[in-house]
């Protein structure tokens, strides 16, 4: 036993990535753009003379509320997407469900062609106004990337690895938990990241159905012809999206299983 826990000089250099890659660039460019936008927004806020209307639109308390709504809507819809799409993806990749899988991906793919703007309005007509409707509409629109990536992620696992697990007497559930899911995580997380960004974008339209969000500021700016307010609103929406995207990129990086 004691020999088994002896210290090991690990060869770290073999594990660190030598080359920059798209993921690394992501983590530089996204925050850079966010910073530029932030600086611009602060600059505009500081050095523009607000008339009373602009001031009313950009009232800090309502901006804070809209920001909260924006984030909450995005968060809950992403959570809903994950809790529906991942189990569904697992289910349709099990043996005997290839037809169901193809049908599902096709239907959702077609659904993707429905403009987000139209979809959220149709959900409003169907379910009435409010945050719940918005969360459901958002989740529906963002379902495909997570579902597709779950399916792809599970299917790209080297079949000889699963075969080896089966040959050693792992049950189907053990193979799923210990082999397939861990190895699919990078691909699934990439899908969740995409979904989260889509959700932030669509949450900006939630104002259309009375669910708030930063779209309110942009809309008020448009209605009352106040370009400054429009800009501040748009910059804030973009910042939330960029923040979600960066969080996703970080998750992609740190949730990747070691050795892969």
């Amino acid at each position: 036993m004691s020999t088994a826990i002896a210290e090991v000089a690990t060869d770290e250099s073999t594990r660190t990535r030598r080359k920059w890659n798209a993921a690394n660039l992501d983590l530089i460019i996204t925050p850079t753009l966010a910073l530029v936008l932030l600086v611009l927004a602060v600059f505009v806020w500081q050095y523009t003379e607000f008339d009373s209307t602009t001031e009313r639109i950009l009232e800090p308390a309502s901006l804070a509320r809209q920001m909260r709504q924006q984030i909450t809507l995005s968060f809950w819809s992403t959570l809903l997407v994950v809790s529906v799409a991942v189990p569904l993806g697992i289910l349709v990749t099990r043996r005997g469900a290839p037809k169901l899988k193809d049908a599902l991906v096709t239907v959702l793919g077609l659904g993707q062609a429905v403009p987000a703007y139209g979809l959220i309005v149709l959900f409003f007509v169907w379910l009435g106004q409010g945050a719940t409707t918005a969360v459901i509409a958002l989740a529906t629109f963002a379902l495909l990337p997570v579902l597709r990536n779950t399916i792809v992620g599970l299917q790209q696992v080297d079949s000889s690895v699963i075969e080896a697990g089966k040959g050693m007497g792992m049950t189907a559930l053990q193979r799923l938990r210990k082999i397939e899911l861990p190895l699919a995580v990078p691909v699934i997380v990439a899908g969740v990241r995409t979904a989260a960004v889509i959700n932030v974008g669509m949450a900006a339209l939630a104002f259309l159905i009375g669910a708030g969000g930063l779209g309110e500021t942009i809309n008020a700016g448009l209605k009352l012809n106040r370009p400054t307010a429009i800009f501040i609103g748009a910059a804030l929406v973009a910042l939330v999206a960029l923040a979600f995207d960066t969080a996703g990129a970080l998750a992609q990086r740190y949730l990747r299983p070691r050795g892969v």
Binding site: T30, V197, G221, L222, I230, A235, A238, A241
Partner: peptide
């Protein structure tokens, strides 16, 4: 250039449609 092009897709449509209005 790929990274820059993809960061545009991250920005919500309502924001990108309106941010150039000024």
């Amino acid at each position: 250039s790929l990274a820059i092009a993809s960061v545009f897709l991250t920005i919500p449509s309502l924001a990108l449609f309106t941010i150039f209005i000024p």
